[in-house]
């Protein structure tokens, strides 16, 4: 006999407690699709907090989503530091040219005030509006770039690797500045009504740096930062691998880890079981071309590999579903999750 239907919040909290809820929770991490729902361009959509609040609420209803994703776009953070945001008609906004062009600039860099950033305040306003409408029915997920990964947008990936490997003094200084920003930004979202913060940290992935380097850099940054964020966090590697550091990630204080389609959920679950909840790992890029049968297979496989015992949220592997993924595919994922995700596992 199946148990009573839970609210999204109950479902998510149960799985985070490594227990089996009524069914596997589904986090469709949709951002730009809200613009489509409201008939707006991506730029128009993100220019107003009310649009995003309304878009997210409609998306949650349409796809029976178990979360509200309050993420606007990554460069909204670098905009606060003085960077440029470049909008596209069919994709997420990009960060413009890096604003740290010389390593020496780091010495005079000033941490922006979250309260004085119009873009960041717009995100907080959207979170407040959503919270006032859904209360505790579903978790609202805020997003912050990790201090360790933000420099990719602040100074460019190649220059950042040069900094990390060749200029330890300036690297450490930049980390301290970014940590201060990340903590203030995360806590502002929590104060506005976010339930948890998704801590995006792709640079810490073994896809990008070796574990040894992670342990002396991104790991320490994560421990210092997460301990000062006043709510639960989910660490996301944005499609990067994490199997080789999953044991370490579990000791940073984070509750959830976003995992890659490049790794087997079964192997990840062996390490994560009872310690850290897995979030993933449907391939968002491929999802554009999935047939209904393919959706069914992918959803079923993921649940079969990682669903047992809770500690699993079905989601995409990147932390943002591409704008090109059709509504029918998203509906099929939602339906397949209800069909195959019921506990006890089929």
């Amino acid at each position: 006999m199946s148990m009573k239907t839970m609210t999204s919040m109950e479902r998510v909290l149960t799985t985070l407690g490594h227990q089996e809820p009524d069914r596997v929770p589904l986090f469709l991490l949709l951002t730009m699709h809200g613009a489509k729902e409201l008939g707006l361009t991506i730029k128009e959509y993100f220019s107003n907090a009310g649009n995003v609040a309304e878009g997210q609420l409609r998306l949650r209803k349409k796809y029976s989503n178990d979360c509200i994703y309050a993420f606007f776009h990554a460069p909204i953070e670098t905009e606060a530091w003085g960077g440029e945001v470049i909008f596209h008609e069919e994709g997420p906004p990009n960060a413009g040219a890096p604003f740290i062009t010389r390593i020496e600039q780091i010495h005079s860099l000033k941490v922006p005030s979250v309260k004085e950033s119009k873009g960041l305040q717009r995100v907080c306003e959207a979170i407040s509006k959503i919270k006032s409408r859904i209360g505790d029915e579903a978790p609202i997920i805020g997003v912050a770039m990790s201090p360790f990964s933000l420099p990719v947008m602040q100074m460019g990936f190649d220059k950042y690797l040069d900094l990390m490997f060749l200029h330890p003094k300036e690297f450490n200084l930049l980390m301290r500045l970014n940590e201060q920003f990340c903590i203030e930004w995360s806590n502002a979202q929590l104060a506005a009504g976010a339930t948890a913060i998704c801590y995006f940290d792709p640079v810490s992935s073994p896809t990008i740096i070796p574990r040894e380097k992670y342990l002396e850099t991104g790991y320490l940054v994560a421990k210092r930062t997460i301990s000062q964020i006043q709510g639960p966090t989910a660490t996301h590697f944005a499609s990067g691998r994490c199997l080789g550091i999953l044991d370490d990630v579990a000791t940073t204080g984070t509750a959830v880890v976003g995992v890659s389609a490049l790794e087997e959920l079964r192997k990840l679950k062996e390490i994560a079981k009872g310690r850290i909840t897995l979030l993933g790992n449907l391939n968002g890029v491929e999802m554009r071309t999935w047939s209904q049968e393919k959706v069914e297979k992918e959803v079923r496989d993921a649940i079969e590999q990682a669903g047992s015992g809770g500690g699993f949220i079905l989601s995409d592997n990147h932390g943002e579903i591409p704008f090109q993924v059709e509504d029918d595919t998203l509906l099929a994922i939602s339906e397949a999750t209800r069909r195959w995700g019921e506990y006890p596992p089929k």
Partner: peptide
Amino acid sequence: KGNLSLSQVYM
């Protein structure tokens, strides 16, 4: 194959 990282390839 996932045995090395992108930073190692780059450097």
